[in-house]
């Protein structure tokens, strides 16, 4: 286009349509914020009242919501479960992806292993749920540790696929050179291969983080007997205690959404990149 000497002009019509379309995304968030700040007495049935800003920006609902839902404990659980899952996923799934990816071209056994693990992607949680509850209860894992182990298994198929796919970009010569220098293959992996898979670590971290942070079903069925909750699970468990006090409930929802929204604002590029990368490579 440049060759023709014409300047690329902005499509203002589409820009405006897209800006208006953002309302579909932002309206529910706007409602959450204003309801979370309002008093129950401010909740009226007419449209203007429902959409208006709160008369004062008081944080009382939030303080109460934190107390009712045991917010800090739920937040700590969510952070620990997601954090540990991410770290272990990167460590363990990258090893699996590496070993399988490097050997599957030459060895039937590894090729079988690859399909065995990757086909786990199609196993719905619904079929594993009931036996897993029994299993984790028997071996004393009906707690956050059990949830982390399960996540490591659930995300293994996609992550192994991503890592072993990415491995094609890393020439075999790299590790052969290290091995000739006398390094063991264990050492070679950590010194040479692991650092080179860095872009994939970011993708795996993002995909695993989004999945585990928002997951309800696994903690719901595995930790239901214990005192522990996660942020989303706390919303479900305390639903009855919110009763018809929607302001309290929405303050709690907003509190539960804020950590991931902050994370998104800070690493928006990495998150969008990671999700796109993961889906396209996978």
């Amino acid at each position: 286009m440049r060759r023709l000497g014409k300047k690329q002009h902005t499509n203002w019509f589409l820009t405006i349509v897209l800006i208006l379309g953002c309302l579909t995304v932002l309206f529910p968030l706007y409602m959450t914020v204003i309801i979370a700040f309002k008093n129950p007495s401010e909740m009226t049935n007419d449209v203007a009242g429902a959409l208006s800003l709160p008369s004062s920006w008081s944080f009382d609902n939030f303080a109460e919501a934190m107390r009712v839902t045991n917010f800090w404990s739920a937040l700590a659980n969510s952070l620990v479960i997601t954090g540990v899952t991410i770290v272990l996923s990167i460590l363990i799934h990258s090893i699996a992806g590496y070993v399988i990816g490097r050997n599957m071209r030459r060895k039937k056994g590894y090729r079988f292993l690859y399909f065995y693990i990757v086909s786990g992607m199609f196993v719905p949680f619904a079929i594993l749920m009931m036996p897993l509850v029994k299993e984790t209860a028997v071996i004393g894992l009906a707690n956050p540790v059990g949830v982390i182990l399960l996540y490591l298994v659930f995300y293994m198929p996609i992550n192994v696929m991503l890592y072993s796919g990415y491995l094609k970009n890393i020439p075999l010569a790299m590790e052969e050179a290290a091995e000739i220098d006398g390094a063991s293959s264990w050492k070679t992996y950590w010194k040479v291969i692991f650092p080179m898979m860095k872009p994939m670590h970011a993708t795996v971290a993002v995909l695993t983080a989004l999945g585990t942070w928002n997951d309800v079903m696994t903690p719901l069925v595995i930790m239901s007997g214990s005192e522990n909750t996660t942020l989303p699970l706390a919303q479900l468990n305390f639903q009855t205690q919110f009763g018809t006090n929607y302001n309290l409930a929405f303050a709690s929802y907003l509190l539960a959404l804020i950590p991931i929204l902050i994370f998104y604002v800070i690493c928006q590029k990495q998150i969008i990149g990671g999700v796109a990368n993961g889906a396209v490579k996978g």
């Binding site: 800006i19 995304v25 991931i260």
Partner: peptide
């Protein structure tokens, strides 16, 4: 397409994906 505020708009339209289904 050739629009203004491209990355901001993309960022906003992606928000629903990061929020948990239960709370939404």
């Amino acid at each position: 397409s050739r629009i203004k505020f491209k990355s901001t708009l993309r960022g906003i339209y992606f928000i629903p994906n990061i929020l948990g289904g239960l709370i939404v």
